[in-house]
């Protein structure tokens, strides 16, 4: 194991894969000469040269489409969006071309492409730069959506994503790029998509949370433990495919569920998990399923408003106590 920042773990994943397979290339805004807007690709230009680490103009629609075309014609692009807020400019390529070409060609074309970059709110960036896109992209059949919360998962899942023959949306976080943790150095370290991680075991209440919210969940679990309740914390790691079995298994044990999702609430990942759990484990629920999400408003700027916007550990604890009937 090595202690790496999240960005370094992601870089290690890309570097190892690009060393393994010449068909993989990285393309995006500022990925090469600038060393990456968030330094994820730092040094990769030096290692792989400008043929494989390619700067683009500010042209998301163009370079997202370039990636899709290259994937149709035998390459394995990693397309970096500086943030996923900008993926909306190239939305058509991400949602209408990448996931559909295989299907509408009757399976004649592969689509081994990764769209990656930071997702979700990252401080006081206001409404247009704080979008959480995971529910949105999960709504498109043909796409896979990955959203890790710790560096080790970041590495293992990104390596898997790059090896997928299907388009993968790989969602990172500006606020987590500096997060340091143990990362496997095992050769060929991959984590399968659709496999959740039980980060903390407990028998009283299940908390499901991905990405940054996972850390909120861990904080809340600590606070609950002080009150005498043991929370089980599950990080689904991939949103699509979703490891619903792991979540259901936990709910069958704890009989109560709180989902944290920093997305806006309507038709969110939290909504989907809630639906599936009531479908699969209705008779095991001893309380309604509660969610902790952003409110249904655009992200604000003012610091106090932004604090109110983001899901927090206190709110999570409160909701856990509610489903525990322990208020």
């Amino acid at each position: 194991m090595a202690t790496l920042q999240f960005r370094e773990a992601l870089r290690a994943a890309m570097t190892e894969e690009m060393e393994r397979d010449d068909d993989i290339f990285l393309i995006g805004e500022e990925v090469a000469e600038y060393d990456g807007a968030y330094k994820v690709s730092k040094g990769m230009l030096d290692q792989f040269g400008p043929q494989r680490v390619i700067d683009t103009p500010i042209s998301e629609l163009g370079f997202a489409g370039l990636g899709v075309g290259a994937a149709m014609n035998g390459l394995r692009p990693i397309v970096e969006f500086m943030t996923f807020n900008f993926s909306y400019v190239g939305f058509d390529q991400v949602v209408n071309n990448a996931p559909n070409v295989r299907y509408m060609s009757g399976g004649q074309f592969e689509m081994p492409i990764v769209f990656r970059g930071p997702n979700g709110a990252a401080g006081q960036l206001a409404a247009t730069h704080s979008n959480s896109t995971e529910a949105l992209y999960s709504n498109f059949p043909g796409l896979k959506v990955v959203s890790p919360s710790i560096p080790d998962d970041g590495k293992g899942l990104l390596k898997t994503a790059i090896r997928e023959d299907d388009p993968v949306i790989f969602l990172e976080s500006e606020l987590m790029y500096g997060l340091k943790d143990e990362v496997s150095e095992e050769a060929d370290y991959t984590i399968p998509l659709g496999s959740a991680r039980v980060a903390r075991e407990g028998s009283d209440v299940t908390i499901v949370a991905h990405s940054k919210s996972h850390h909120v969940a861990m904080d809340a679990a600590e606070q609950l433990a002080e009150k005498g309740y043991e929370a089980e914390v599950i990080d689904p790691r991939t949103i699509k495919p979703l490891d619903i079995d792991a979540i259901v298994e936990s709910v069958v044990k704890t009989n109560r569920l709180v989902v944290i999702d920093e997305s806006n609430p309507f038709a969110s990942v939290a909504s989907e998990i809630t639906h599936r759990v009531q479908d699969r484990a209705f008779d095991y629920l001893d309380a309604p399923i509660l969610r902790v999400t952003a409110p249904d408003v655009p992200a604000p700027y003012a610091p106090n408003l932004m604090d109110a916007y983001m899901p927090g550990a206190d709110e999570t604890v409160d909701k856990c106590l509610r489903v525990l009937y322990a208020e």
Binding site: N255, F282, D283, Y284, L285, D286, A287
Partner: peptide, 14 residues
């Protein structure tokens, strides 16, 4: 006896 629905969690019912 007034015919009110009994409120119970699904788990409690099971």
């Amino acid at each position: 006896a007034e015919g009110r629905r009994i409120k119970a969690s699904p788990l409690a019912r099971r």
